[in-house]
């Protein structure tokens, strides 16, 4: 039986101080683009190395005091808004549901390439009749805490799509109204086994109009215990008149 000496070098043959230097050089910015990319890839997979980088970033943050504030031209923010919101909105109008699906897949899949593959995985479709003769399908992706329940009533031809939390995770999805300033207000929790309709309290109804921001978060079963969103926000968007 062999025993590893306690003070052996890390498996990469480097020493702790080498990682400390590499992390510091990355934060200083002296490295080549290729080296920067290598380091960023390593940060994604090596948490203790990522912590070394984060610590240098935090330590050297006081150097940011050397940057004397300068006003950019007003055209810059207009261009940012145009790129972020105008182009997105056009996609939203055209794509409706698929845009919503994009939100769900964004939750658990890091890259759009993987997410595209994930859509192919939406194959765990279980069709089963219910007492009301509705046909129900649950669309989910592996490891995703959120599923879409599609319920279809053949009698009237209505199809509803309801976001639900994965039952095995014992979470609920909660809908929030996000005001321009101040805290989000709960509009309700999506209850499993219902048709996805939420009854909005009378005093909140006037606040849901053009431009209001709605968001859905994953919360402990039954809804947020604090009255404010506690879990990750999986979808959000602005309301508009159709």
């Amino acid at each position: 039986m062999t025993t590893e000496p306690l003070d052996r070098n890390p498996p990469d043959g480097g020493r702790p101080e080498n990682d400390e230097i590499l992390a510091g050089e990355y934060v200083l910015g002296v490295l080549s683009l290729e080296a920067r990319h290598r380091i960023e890839a390593r940060m994604a997979s090596d948490q203790s190395f990522a912590r070394l980088v984060a610590r240098w970033q935090s330590n050297m943050a006081s150097f940011n005091g050397d940057y004397q504030e300068q006003q950019p031209s007003t055209a810059v923010f207009q261009a940012i808004e145009r790129r972020l919101f105008t182009e997105n909105r056009r996609v939203e109008v055209k794509q409706g549901l698929w845009d919503a699906v994009g939100f769900w897949r964004g939750l658990s899949f890091a890259t759009s390439a993987i997410a595209a593959v994930a859509l192919l995985y939406i194959a765990t479709v279980q069709l089963r009749p219910t007492t009301t003769n509705n046909i129900v399908a649950e669309l989910s992706a592996p490891n995703d805490p959120v599923a879409l329940r599609v319920s279809f009533n053949p009698a009237d031809g209505r199809l509803r799509i309801i976001p639900i939390a994965d039952q095995s995770t014992e979470k609920s999805l909660q809908l929030w109204l996000v005001p321009q300033s101040g805290n989000p207000t709960s509009l309700g929790v999506f209850e499993p086994g219902t048709d996805g309709e939420l009854l909005i309290p009378a005093k909140l109804r006037s606040r849901i109009g053009q431009g209001a921001t709605l968001a859905v978060s994953v919360e402990p079963l039954g809804g947020s215990p604090t009255g404010l969103p506690t879990g990750p926000v999986i979808a959000s968007g602005s309301a508009r008149n159709l």
Binding site: W176, S181, P184, T213, P229, V233, S238
Partner: peptide
């Protein structure tokens, strides 16, 4: 608030 898609917060932050 920017994280939950609040555009006003984004404007303020900018």
């Amino acid at each position: 608030r920017v994280a939950i898609g609040d555009r006003q917060a984004f404007t303020d932050l900018y």
